[in-house]
C-alpha cells in the first residue's frame, strides 16, 4: 500500500468498514452459534434476546453426535470432496493445458464448448444422470457422487486453469524444448510447478462446491451411513414441519469448521491463484 495513513484516516478507511463487513458477513453465524448453544425453550421465548444465551447448554451438540451419524457424514463429505476435487483437477489440467498453450485445429471450438458446459443447469441433468448412475450399478455408493461432481467441477477448474497457464511466459517452455526436453517433461517439470497456486485455488474452490452440493447427493446417496453432511442433516433433522433448530445449527457450524481451517491455511495461495492469471494474461 502507498505510504502510511494517519490514524483518523485509517479508522475511516480500514477499521470502520472492516467492522461493518464483519457484522454483515458474520452476524448470522453469531445467531447460529447462540442457537446451537441454548435449549429450545429459550430459543422459543419471545422475551429472550436472540443473540444472547441465558442458560448455555451443549445438549444439541451431544444429541447431534449421539443420535445421528454426524461424524460419518463429515468423513464422507471430506472424502467425496477430496476425491472429486482431485479428479476434477487432473481432468481440468488435461483440458486446460492444450487449450491455453498449444496451437492446433479446433482449439477455439473446444474452448467454447467447455464454456457452454458451464451453462447447463443441473435441473436439466439430474434425471438422465440418475439413469446413468443406475446403469453403471453405482447407486447408493460414494463413487456415484465422486464421478458426478466432476461434471460440475471440471469445466470450472479448466476455465480457471486456462487463465493461469496463460500467465506463464511462452519462452520458458520454448527454452525447455530447445534444450531437448519433451513436451511432457516441459509441462510437468517447468510449467505445472510454476502454477501450484493456481491448483490450490481451483482445488479449494472445487472442494467447497463439492462439499456443498445437494441434489446429486440426495439422489445418489441413500443409506444414512453413506450420506454427506447437507443430505444427512436435512434428512434426519428436518422432520416434516418440525425442525431440530439447535442441532441443525450445530451441524452447520461443525460442518464448516474443517473447511475454514483449510481456508485459513491456504488463503494466501487461494488469493494469488484465483485471478493472477486473468490480470497478467
Amino acid at each position: 500500500m502507498v505510504g502510511e495513513l494517519t490514524w483518523p484516516r485509517r479508522l475511516l478507511g480500514l477499521w470502520v468498514p472492516l467492522a461493518a463487513l464483519f457484522v454483515f458477513a458474520l452476524f448470522p453465524f453469531a445467531w447460529m452459534a447462540a442457537t446451537s448453544l441454548k435449549a429450545n425453550a429459550e430459543l422459543y421465548d419471545p422475551a429472550a434476546n436472540p443473540m444472547w444465551i441465558r442458560h448455555p447448554s451443549l445438549v444439541h451438540y451431544i444429541d447431534l453426535f449421539k443420535e445421528t451419524n454426524f461424524v460419518v457424514w463429515i468423513g464422507n463429505t471430506m472424502l467425496v470432496a477430496l476425491v472429486s476435487t482431485l479428479i476434477s483437477l487432473l481432468l481440468g489440467v488435461m483440458l486446460a493445458y492444450p487449450l491455453a498453450r498449444m496451437r492446433f485445429p479446433a482449439a477455439g471450438l473446444l474452448a467454447i464448448s467447455v464454456a457452454v458446459a458451464y451453462l447447463v443447469p443441473q435441473t436439466l441433468l439430474f434425471v438422465p444422470m440418475a439413469d446413468l448412475i443406475n446403469r453403471m450399478k453405482l447407486g447408493d455408493s460414494l463413487s456415484a457422487v465422486m464421478l458426478t461432481y466432476p461434471t460440475l467441477l471440471v469445466p470450472f477448474c479448466a476455465w480457471l486453469l486456462i487463465g493461469y497457464f496463460k500467465t506463464v511466459p511462452r519462452e520458458l517452455e520454448e527454452a525447455a524444448l530447445i534444450d531437448g526436453a519433451s513436451r511432457w517433461r516441459a509441462m510437468t517439470r517447468v510449467i505445472l510447478p510454476l502454477c501450484t497456486p493456481g491448483f490450490l485455488s481451483a482445488g479449494i474452490f472445487a472442494f467447497t462446491l463439492a462439499q456443498n452440493e445437494f441434489l446429486y447427493a440426495l439422489l445418489f446417496l441413500n443409506t444414512s451411513t453413506i450420506r454427506t453432511v447437507p443430505v444427512g442433516v436435512t434428512g434426519e433433522l428436518i422432520r416434516g414441519d418440525a425442525f431440530y433448530w439447535g442441532q441443525l445449527m450445530a451441524a452447520a457450524l461443525l460442518g464448516s469448521l474443517p473447511v475454514v481451517l483449510i481456508y485459513s491455511f491456504f488463503v494466501k495461495y487461494y488469493v494469488a491463484g484465483l485471478t493472477a492469471g486473468s490480470v497478467k494474461g
Binding site: V127, A130, L218, N222, T223, S224, E236, D241
Partner: peptide, 15 residues
Amino acid sequence: EIVAAGGSAVPRLVS
C-alpha cells in the same frame, strides 16, 4: 431409507 420431508422425497421418487 429416509429422506427429508417437504421437497426431497418427490425428486427421489421420480428418479
